[in-house]
């Protein structure tokens, strides 16, 4: 048991640094996923057929391409094409845009859960389309989608492990564990602590979303 703890305490810098990198990746990707996901969801419910189709194409492409392919495109692919992108931007961008497709789908179903009377009432009060969406529909949609949004975020935290594997400069939790493993040959211990690192983040997210759900729940 103490051998297990030793691996952690002797490599605290690596593991702590890894956790910090993963946290920043996840937070950055979360912001992009929410912003882009909301915009795509708005496209998906727009009054024009072409806008809806555009949103559909976004969702179907980003949801069906493997994240590893997106990450390789975002860094190595763009670099080869002469775009001077750095690894942070590529990693956060790819994970964020990938997750945005899922967020958009969940938000869309949340919007459909808002009763039609709400929209009709808002339109008859003189609100425009954009204002109805922003003031009436989206605030309610966000609330009903908190539980599924939570599981998307948890999936995103787990998916962030792929970033460190495909982009060399980003030492996230999994990459740090592999560095420790390569140095000490303590395979079980290193991977166990990496697993604990990810569990720490996913459990925090679960608790956070459950709290949000309870705070914002609408009684119907």
């Amino acid at each position: 048991m103490s051998a297990l703890l030793d691996v952690l305490t002797e490599n605290l810098d690596e593991f702590g640094g890894g956790l910090w990198v993963t946290l920043r990746l996840v937070l950055g990707a979360f912001v992009i996923a929410i912003v882009v996901g909301t915009m795509v969801a708005a496209l998906r419910i727009a009054p024009s057929v072409w806008l809806r189709r555009l949103g559909g194409i976004y969702v179907e492409s980003f949801r069906n391409i493997p994240l590893l392919v997106l990450l390789t495109m975002a860094y190595a692919g763009l670099r080869r094409a002469g775009v001077p992108i750095d690894q942070w931007t590529a990693g956060i961008g790819a994970l964020g845009l990938y997750t945005a497709a899922y967020v958009a789908e969940v938000l869309r179903s949340g919007v459909f859960a808002v009763s039609k009377g709400q929209i009709e009432a808002s339109l008859s009060l003189g609100f425009g389309y954009a204002e109805t969406l922003r003031r009436i529909v989206l605030p309610q949609a966000f609330r009903t989608v908190i539980p599924p949004l939570g599981s998307i975020v948890i999936a995103m935290i787990k998916n962030s492990a792929i970033i460190g594997v495909s982009l060399i400069a980003l030492n996230d939790v999994l990459k740090s564990a592999r560095l420790v493993q390569a140095e000490t040959f303590k395979t079980e211990e290193a991977f166990l602590w990496a697993a604990v690192g990810y569990l720490l983040l996913t459990v925090t997210a679960t608790v956070g979303f459950r709290f949000l759900e309870r705070r914002l729940a609408i009684s119907r």
């Binding site: 935290i157 787990k158 999994l174 564990a177 395979t187 991977f191 996913t202």
Partner: peptide, 15 residues
């Protein structure tokens, strides 16, 4: 269910 899949793949590949 709660472990990142890539972590499990790498672990088995090494161990």
């Amino acid at each position: 269910r709660n472990l990142p899949l890539i972590l499990v793949i790498l672990y088995f590949a090494i161990a």
